[in-house]
């Protein structure tokens, strides 16, 4: 019994850390216009809309975070193997992984922008200087929290995988959660505030992203404020729930039927969430209705 209570405590802590990681991850990727919003940021100058938005495309979010977290975990593992205290090892590992992330971000922005010279898109190095550091700060929070979750699983819950492998698995999960949950807030709405709400992205509006802010010109720090309010928390809830339910079902139901209990509960949790998702989708369609004509869309 004591073991289960201890396990539940670790589960709650890991879920909370994962929520923080998810929120930071989505804010980081949105400031860099990574993932789903990237195609429009990349397309805009080709359509004649020169912009001052950070464009750091480093693969998709899941592979990129697979690397950052696996690297943070691998370095932390190596430092622990050198008899360094785990907390210090995780901090050092995450800091070095963030250094790699920052370097990748700068080379991605320079490469993409220099290749768009034909469309008169200049390289704004103030963007590079101010926004890379902000993404690095958010990435540190995301990597540190996720590596800590992995260390808790490995050390406290006795997960058989070594730390770097857990880092790879949970890094990909973190990137996928942020990419799927948080990005549409920025990619589908924020970039297209100049279109009618719910209009989607008509072909004629491709690349016509919002380039001017409340005052002056919009840069990616403005998108960071927006993401921290909507997309970030949504991703945080998503990733937090994933980590929490994953560990909860294992800790509580592992002893049932030689491990099959945890698998059955996992399937049941997925089914419950599928029903909830379907209900919300149908409710939202009924309440807000499909987009038909501009006249009706004003309500």
């Amino acid at each position: 019994m004591e073991e289960i209570i201890f396990g539940i405590g670790i589960t709650a802590l890991a879920g909370a850390l994962a929520a923080v990681a998810g929120a930071a991850e989505d804010t980081e990727s949105d400031i860099g216009s990574q993932g789903d919003p990237n195609s429009q940021v990349q397309l805009a100058p080709q359509m004649g809309y020169v912009h001052r938005i950070f464009n750091k495309a480093i693969a998709g979010e899941p592979p990129a975070y697979g690397l950052w977290v696996a690297l943070g975990a691998g370095l932390a593992w190596a430092f622990m193997a050198m008899q360094i205290n785990p907390i210090l090892a995780i901090v050092l590992g995450s800091a070095l992984a963030v250094f790699v992330q920052g370097v990748y971000a700068t080379t991605a922005y320079l490469g993409r922008t220099a290749s768009l010279s034909k469309f008169e898109q200049p390289v704004y190095i103030d963007i590079l200087k101010s926004m890379t550091t902000v993404t690095m700060a958010h990435a540190f929070v995301a990597i540190f929290a996720t590596v800590t979750v992995c260390h808790l699983m490995n050390g406290a819950l006795g997960h058989p995988f070594p730390l770097p492998l857990l880092g790879l698995v949970w890094g990909i999960a973190l990137g996928a959660a942020g990419s799927a949950t948080g990005n549409p807030f920025y990619g589908k709405e924020r970039q297209y505030q100049n279109q009618a709400f719910g209009a989607g992205v008509p072909i004629a509006a491709s690349g016509n992203i919002v380039r001017y802010a409340e005052a002056g010109q919009r840069n990616s720090i403005d998108n960071g404020f927006f993401s921290a309010k909507l997309g970030g928390p949504a991703s945080g809830i998503c990733f937090g729930l994933i980590v929490f339910f994953e560990l909860w079902r294992t800790v509580v139901f592992e002893p049932v039927a030689a491990g099959w209990g945890a698998i059955i509960v996992g399937v049941v949790v997925i089914l419950i969430f599928a029903i909830i998702d379907r209900y919300i989708e149908v409710w939202a369609r009924k309440t807000f209705g499909p987009y038909t004509t501009p006249e009706e869309a004003s309500s």
Binding site: V50, L110, T113, A114, F119, E120, V123, Y124, G216
Partner: peptide
């Protein structure tokens, strides 16, 4: 090499609309 290939290398300058 990026500096060589870039259209312009600007620091804290506004958007210059294409011609």
């Amino acid at each position: 090499l990026s500096k060589r290939d870039a259209y312009a290398w600007l620091d804290a300058k506004p958007i210059i609309e294409p011609k």
